[in-house]
Design a protein around this nucleic acid. Structure first.
Lengths: 331, 331
DNA sequence: GTGAAAGCGCTAACAT
DNA sequence: ATGTTAGCGCTTTCAC
């Protein structure tokens, strides 16, 4: 900057004024400074500037997601990026990978870099460690999971209603023996989805059969085994509601292997890639990760712009996509 | 930092020493400083420190990919992140979205933030604008596409050999009329894949039929139309080699709609999600995005650590995954 | 409309 | 083993 100033024959502050497009600089001076900057290939240093700047903004955001390689997270990321780029804000993205250590480490790394705000999918038992930041007014939005030990803006899929809706769809097709395949009971979203399933059954006067409720399914292979068990029952289910992505895939594989995919109905929570090209095509209760990311980013920027209303939950509705597997009727 | 120093009753430099784990600080002093830091919830500011630091590193990397929401890019991203996190380097990720404007804007944003290195998928006709950075020794690695007007490290899928291999696989099954469905002719990877296809035919003594080569297919719908045209030919192809992800999906849809999916063989370049659950399951020449990301990151860090050998191309091999669609024999 | 000086949070260089 | 001073690239404050 000093060099540019010297070359243009002005003071550093004038260069600063031109770079930041402040007023009260003559057109002539602007032109001279621009030319000098061009000639020296001057790139302003955002970080250095933000050091002294009144609002102390770094124009960066920290985003922590399950894994940047997972489609849901990637869609959230993309939406956040699109919102950020318009404000010239850059996004640090980091993957959590179900590792509580990594959560703390990533958040610390963000904090050390003085991000303006945080969008987090969390896994630790408590997020109380973020208390000081919240008090200092740093915008923090939680995504997909509620924080523990902390009150903050949160963007959530309507897990309860979504799961109920999927279940009701199967009930409406005439099913009464509907199995539930769920994720780890410790996860908030998993609990909500199970609750939605049970609520829907209850409302229809169907007593839940505990043998049809299988939880703590972490990956495809476990879901496959679970479906095999279900089909081996004396009185097997005529339909399956699978409460998560990978579980749905596992269920598809198992149903197909057993030759039951055209007989046993299946509705999955969360969309599955290529779902419409499978046979039968897979009916799902789809989440809206783009909306989640967009809302989270919007909230961060609102807070940054001074919005100070109390923390809220933003509930994002789901969408039932009927493709075939969920419309199979009981024999 | 000043506050911590005061509270601990030491000078700022001593705090700095403790934070950076430099030697020559007594255990007792370390303890006092740590306690003070804890008490004040002190978070060092990485950026401020790097301002004066000799190596001027910001411990950040800029990553520009097609779209963080696309599975290939996401896998590259993930691999880069995993390498970076071990060095306490944070990654700015940005999506290109086939928009040359966005390429420039993102790179500028990275540069303004003084990233230590750049990993780029590019689209602009020329990357000469990065010349100054390269000369100044900033590590830049291009990924998936070669840069134009610039010599720099590049990590590439073996497009030529991969496409040849996919084509040879179809030839080996006895096909002689093999169609080629390609992306925009302007894209480097698309050109290479076409070349691989033609080379394989030539080597086998099969004269390419220009009516079987359809290019500039940007999305699924266009690929569908192309396949419909091909099947309507007097002498239709018995096999299709589709040179890109979305094109493969379009081809699957069209083949299925025409009832030809069990009759016409299909090999796709780049893996397709859920490929093994489709019927027929899709044979592909798979790329290895994780390897690409890992190699790119490794190269950046090698350069940062002083490696100064001339720029090289790193060629990442493909893998033929036989799943069914590519093993269909001609009638 | 413009510039000089101080200072943002930190590290380098040089004390002691 | 520890402290002091200058300075990184910029913005602020205030003077002209």
């Amino acid at each position: 900057m000093k060099n540019v100033a010297d070359l243009a024959g002005v003071g550093v502050k004038t260069v600063s004024r031109v770079i930041n497009q402040e007023r009260y600089v003559s057109a002539d001076t602007i032109a001279r400074v621009m030319r000098a900057a061009e000639q020296l290939q001057y790139q302003p240093d955002v970080q250095a500037g933000n050091l002294r700047r009144a609002d102390r903004r770094t124009d960066t955001l920290g985003l922590l997601v399950g894994s940047v390689a997972n489609p849901f997270s990637a869609a959230v990321h993309r939406a956040v990026e699109d919102a950020a780029i318009q404000r010239h804000v850059a996004v640090f993205a980091s993957s959590l990978d179900d590792d509580p250590e990594r959560e703390r480490a990533s958040v610390e790394a963000f904090l050390r870099r003085r991000v303006d705000g945080l969008i987090l999918t969390t896994i630790q038992r408590s997020q109380a460690y973020l208390g000081p930041q919240l008090e200092q007014g740093m915008p923090v939005v939680f995504v997909d999971r509620k924080p523990n030990g902390l009150i903050a803006d949160t963007v959530l899929t309507d897990n309860l209603e979504g799961a109920a809706r999927g279940t009701r769809h199967l009930l409406a097709a005439g099913h009464r023996r509907i199995a539930f395949l769920g994720d780890s009971e410790e996860i908030y979203t998993a609990k909500e989805r199970k609750r939605g399933y049970l609520d829907a059954l209850r409302l229809e006067g169907v007593a839940p059969d505990p043998r049809l409720v299988i939880e703590n399914l972490g990956e495809e292979a476990q879901a496959e085994l679970a479906v095999n068990e279900l089909l081996a029952l004396d009185d097997p289910p005529t339909a399956i509601f699978s409460a998560q992505n990978l579980i749905t895939i596992g269920a598809i594989i198992a149903l197909r292997a057993q030759g039951a995919s055209e007989r046993v109905a299946l509705v999955g929570f969360d969309d599955v890639p290529m779902a419409s090209l499978l046979s039968p095509a897979v009916t799902v209760v789809a989440q809206d990760p783009s909306a989640i990311g967009a809302i989270a980013a919007r909230r961060i920027f609102e807070r940054l712009d001074g919005e100070s209303e109390p923390a809220r939950d933003f509930i994002v509705p789901t969408r039932l996509i009927k493709r075939g597997s969920g419309e199979i009727r009981p024999a």
